[in-house]
């Protein structure tokens, strides 16, 4: 065992990269659920974002455009879910699962010509002056722009949800849609906007995998990241900063256990390999035992009012 081979600076920097796709998808889903909608199609939207972002970047050599198109693709796919669940009143769980299957299938179809292709990835952005600070600089200020964008999205989401009228309305719709409707708020419109935001974030998360983290297109490459994002939302009790904490904790443990394995620590490998999931489950259990875990009151319930 040689722990000196693990560079803590590189480890912490890797943690941020590993957490970013889950973070983006989870914050989007947190907003969707705050509005009272349960969308289990995160995986499908992520992988659609991954393939669209990759395809656009391959064809244009512009990763920023790739990310923009990935967000649009994720939002467009989420609108399919939105129309089915909000207007046609289909079951949210079944529709979300269907969306995941649809996303996996359509991404496979779109992605076929792009297998094995190289892509222009986002170059690292070193924040002037700050990146030169010893230790902290390489950990926090030498990342690709999407790492910073993901943190900005968290901050903006927190601010909107807690400090603005729009956020109050969204939370009101999620807590009691009948009361919100009685007060004259357009429940379906609010929910559709939240769903679109969630889809866009999931698309960005998927594109981050195919354009930065791996970077290539491989069929099925999200490999369950969307499901982890869903767990992180519950883990975070639907609070934006806790989403950040949850994603970084999961990403951190994932990267750490790989490094510990490579360093040969005398801990059973099966314990290390399962640790990200075990710790997530333990936290979820702890949250459940507390009782008031902050789930929106109308989460997953169908809104029946006529419009």
């Amino acid at each position: 065992m040689d722990l000196s081979q693990i560079n803590p600076i590189l480890l912490l920097a890797s943690l941020m990269v590993a957490a970013t796709p889950i973070l983006l998808a989870a914050i989007g889903e947190a907003v969707v659920e705050k509005a009272g909608v349960l969308n289990l199609g995160v995986e499908g939207m992520m992988i659609t974002g991954a393939v669209v972002g990759f395809a656009i970047t391959v064809n244009t050599d512009a990763p920023v455009l790739g990310f923009v198109c990935a967000a649009i693709a994720g939002a467009a796919l989420s609108m399919l879910f939105g129309i089915l669940t909000q207007y046609l009143l289909s079951n949210q769980v079944a529709t979300g699962l269907g969306l995941t299957l649809f996303g996996l299938g359509v991404s496979s179809l779109i992605g076929k010509p792009y297998e094995g292709m190289k892509v222009t990835t986002l170059s690292k952005f070193e924040v002037p002056l700050l990146s030169d600070i010893p230790v902290i600089g390489p950990i926090l200020f030498k990342h690709d722009p999407m790492v910073y964008v993901s943190i900005l999205i968290i901050a903006a989401t927190w601010y909107v949800l807690t400090h603005t009228r729009a956020g109050l309305i969204l939370r009101g719709v999620g807590e009691n849609h009948d009361a919100a409707h009685a007060l004259g708020y357009k429940v379906i419109r609010v929910r559709l906007m939240a769903i679109a935001f969630g889809g866009a974030c999931a698309g960005l998360g998927g594109a981050y995998i195919s354009l930065v983290r791996v970077p290539q297109w491989v069929d099925g490459m999200t490999a369950g990241a969307g499901w982890i994002a869903l767990a992180i939302v519950v883990f975070a009790s639907w609070r934006p900063w806790r989403v950040l904490l949850g994603a970084y904790l999961f990403g951190g443990i994932t990267v750490l256990q790989l490094n510990l394995q490579a360093a040969g620590v005398p801990v059973p490998v099966e314990v290390l390999a399962s640790s990200p999931y075990i710790i997530t489950i333990l936290v979820l259990v702890a949250i459940s035992m507390k009782g008031s875990h902050g789930a929106p009151g109308a989460l997953g319930k169908i809104f029946h009012a006529t419009h």
Partner: peptide
């Protein structure tokens, strides 16, 4: 240096495993 990924196919985990090994020399 051996890393057990406990998966046959997970591109992100495979990439992370490769990076961890590379970072350790």
């Amino acid at each position: 240096k051996i890393i057990w990924a406990y998966t046959w196919f997970d591109p992100t985990k495979e990439a992370d495993a490769a990076k961890a090994l590379i970072e350790q020399g």
